[in-house]
Write a protein that binds this DNA or RNA. Structure first.
Lengths: 142, 142
DNA sequence: AGCTTAACCGGAACGATTCCGGATAATTTA
DNA sequence: TAAATTATCCGGAATCGTTCCGGTTAAGCT
């Protein structure tokens, strides 16, 4: 699981500064109950701890964390991007109704070597998503 | 494989009109050698056969075809969306260097019932992507 | 405490997509 | 095969998330 301490350590290794804005953003990213937050949500939440925070700084921080492989940024049809801290191979279950994103560990993962052998394609990253309706929204529908 | 005739038949079933603009767009979508075209590419190509074509019509057609499940629209980080006609479950191998998208049949697919049983999530659609470098771009790099 | 410069801010710019209202043409009906 | 209906088209304006910019602030080193 992604922790504040881990991120701070990583940032210091890279020589990046630990600013109050950055800490506020990180707090939201590692905060419980709100996995996969979008930029607007991070902005709104982080502003509580850091009132002067600007939206551009939120984006700058997301990009920086993403560049160093600390988080991953997922983007969706027109909608805003969502951040994710779980870097293990998994499938994202995305609810079309409420937007909630749940991680699902893959039982069998695609063999990257097999792909490389058959196609010559060298895999560096992945994005696996199933769209549909989460348990709660399925119940509510009935 | 997606054919022009198949699409036209589907459209007629749904009571949609067969216009010259629509045909030009479909021609690009089913055209050989250019799988996964983006809106701008479709616009540019389709304009050759239908000079008066507008970009908004291209988008309208993509949306219509997508709404009826004839094609799928994939979108990427800031970049433009890409259309795909292969609706069977597969992984898209996306080259970070040249942007080429190759389909890769999945040997073992995730069991949807298993997901539903464990999480209550009802899958309706999926998006499976591996990012990296295609064979040609890997060679070129060396 | 002073220096360097990464990080910040606000607002303007960007780019893909959508929305609009009037014009056009595909299809149906007589 | 002409008239009627209305889906589709067009061009341009609007939208919206994200990025870029130039000037300012403050983190971290000496």
């Amino acid at each position: 699981m992604l922790t504040k301490e881990f991120i701070i350590q990583k940032l210091q290794e890279k020589g990046l500064r630990i600013t109050s804005q950055r800490l506020a953003v990180i707090d939201v990213l590692v905060g419980k109950g709100h996995l996969h937050p979008g930029a607007r949500f991070i902005f709104k939440e982080a502003k509580k701890k850091c009132p002067g925070l600007s939206l551009s700084s939120v984006y700058a921080n997301i990009n920086e964390l993403s560049r160093y492989g600390i988080i991953k940024s997922l983007e969706f049809d027109g909608k805003e991007n969502r951040c994710e801290g779980n870097l293990e191979e998994h499938v994202n279950l995305i609810c079309e109704h409420c937007g909630k994103i749940t991680d699902f560990k893959i039982p069998v993962s695609l063999n990257q070597r097999e792909v490389a052998k058959k196609t010559g394609f060298m895999i560096t990253n992945n994005r696996l998503e199933y769209y549909g309706y989460c348990g709660e929204c399925t119940k509510r529908k009935e």
